[in-house]
Write a protein that binds this DNA or RNA. Structure first.
Lengths: 343, 343
DNA sequence: AGTCGTTGCTAACACGGTTTAGCTCGACGG
DNA sequence: CCGTCGAGCTAAACCGTGTTAGCAACGACT
């Protein structure tokens, strides 16, 4: 049972003014439209006493603005990464006094279209289309609302959609630099490399991380000591690649993994071989998964700024349409822990 | 700029009927109110041709129903657990053709009240109040919409709120039974115990898991071989407790950890002592964190059914008010992996 | 022939706000 | 004494749908 809500008409009646006046006062246009101070005060007081709350549906209907955003991701669950991204989006929305609709397309274009439709029906003020792993996707057409791609690159380069992505190239450089700074010259790659062609398909993150790594090593006149491409980046794959590395008579040096899960596998392989991090091998990776701080020693990793990504995507929705095009690359900060030692 | 939407009036005009007729046909009340078949057909066809979509704001205003739920959690980010719970809630909402608002209170009652207010303003059809770790909380008053507590217990027991929680007692029994079935008699607890009083404050999960464990052991005429309470359940704490256990001259047996993170710490301590899972120690725990499948050997754990929890909370919102009271305990299934061996 | 019931549709109001156009009244200038 | 102007407020239209009451036409029955 909904107890009956207090309406604007109730407030107006109790304050002895017209609905118009009450509306003007409560939307802070009282001065602009010359409502006297005493009347304004009375209206506000009555509204507070009655605990008046405007009916959002009615405001949406009239103004076309819902103070609501939509956030569609392809997968929410695969990683807690998503959680942080959503958290950032919620915070971004909150700052602008908006609420957030959330939806999950599970990678299906049809389901995504359905969600966009449902959101547009509800007059959202903008939609963020997010992916949990960086990849290319077509831009949905005819949405009629501001759109932002998050962690996703439009297939059609001409499409005028603002894009927010992590700076993976910078991250690659940062990871390599961390090892170089510690004095390492023999750097083994786990997950991709050693040449730019050795990258798992469809993953832009892998491609760009490798690009950054090769740049930074190149600047120091170096190349990777070795590289092992993994099609999938789970701990098991990291374990296999690292075990293979150890069996090739490598007993020390630096290992650069393309994500934290591969690094977990590397830790396991190193420990099972009776070797130690960081005394025998220095390890560095990407993502800053929760896991990284749990390992012994703590894993040094270049963090995916999920919270920032979510927040900035919402901000991008609100940018004026002219500004709102082109890429925003969010920096990926290095989280130094205990996994890097001297060579 | 929004291109102008097609309205019901446009459809009616194009089909040569009144708005009323169009409305009746499109809300499937045409037969009931005797609109002839040819007219119905024409209206539907025209609506499809014009890609007519009803304006949700207007429907909400008229009917008071928004086909929208709210989901408020105290923390989204701490764990990917939240991700699955949200995923379940989204799926539950989708099944009933609803959208989901999401909000995060960060544990603040004020912020929670603000979110509830904003959602009620938007005429949500119900609100789920979720917590990421089971605990007690007061029931917000005067919401005027269906409410469900998820993973949270009302402080005031008389409060008539449906509650959806995981069956932690059953989980405790299942974990203990898994070890008993493998033949273990010496079972060491990490995180809580050995007596019911040895539980970290404010955690209902800990209390109930312990209760289940003690019940199951009691049924077999046993007591825990030892127990170490940890105020916080991070890997570091599990490592310390397990290291202490190993230093007390225990060189084998079964370890029952109160969550997967503690179990990670246990793995680390065992490996650093030169011992092995499951040859020297069998390990079992709770949660089924992503981590559990990544460890070597895979960690046997009793899963928190986050997805189910989220889904059922939404279902509970839709249950008729009379039914909608009391607890629903969602079973926690055992995920058997490789961490249990013979004694 | 008049009454009644049925079929097939529509006029008009309601929902709760925002916004535009305009009304009233007193002061003031000519 | 009349016209003008600004201050301070309000009537009424509007957003797009759902819903109630009822109208016109027509055949059936008394």
């Amino acid at each position: 049972m909904h107890q009956k809500r207090v309406t604007l008409a109730d407030v107006a009646k109790a304050a002895g003014v017209s609905r118009t006046t009450a509306s003007l006062v409560l939307s802070d246009r009282g001065d602009e439209l010359r409502i006297s101070e005493p009347v304004q005060h009375r209206v506000r007081q009555v509204a507070a006493e009655l605990a008046y709350r405007p009916n959002a549906a009615s405001q949406v209907l009239r103004t076309g603005l819902s103070r609501t955003f939509g956030f569609i991701s392809d997968t929410v669950a695969t990683s807690q990464l998503a959680g942080d991204m959503i958290k950032g989006a919620i915070e971004g929305a909150r700052r602008h006094d908006h609420m957030l609709f959330i939806g999950e397309s599970e990678g299906s274009e049809d389901e995504q279209a359905r969600l966009i439709q449902a959101m547009v029906d509800r007059q959202v003020d903008g939609i963020v289309i997010a992916s949990m792993f960086t990849r290319e996707r077509p831009v949905p057409s005819g949405v009629g609302r501001p759109l932002v791609f998050l962690n996703t690159i439009p297939t059609d380069a001409r499409a005028q959609v603002p894009v927010v992505v992590p700076d993976e190239i910078g991250a690659g450089r940062a990871a390599a630099r961390a090892l170089l700074d510690a004095g390492h010259r023999k750097i083994h790659l786990i997950g991709a490399g050693p040449t730019p062609a050795d990258v798992p398909p469809l993953t832009i993150a892998g491609q760009e991380r490798l690009e950054g790594i090769l740049q930074e090593l190149g600047d120091a006149g170096l190349k990777p000591a070795s590289g092992r491409m993994c099609t999938i980046w789970l701990p098991e794959d990291g374990w296999q690649a690292t075990t293979a590395l150890l069996e090739s008579n490598v007993t020390g040096g630096a290992i650069l993994c393309f994500n934290d899960r591969l690094a977990l596998g590397a830790y396991q392989a190193i420990q099972e071989a009776g070797l130690r991090v960081p005394q025998d091998f220095s390890v560095v990776s990407f993502d800053d998964h929760q896991l990284a701080s749990w390992l012994r020693p703590g894993l040094t990793t270049v963090a995916l700024p999920h919270y920032e990504l979510g927040r900035r995507a919402i901000e991008a929705l609100l940018a004026p349409a002219e500004t709102a095009t082109g890429f925003e690359r969010v920096p990926m900060p290095l989280r130094a822990r205990g996994s890097i030692g001297a060579p």
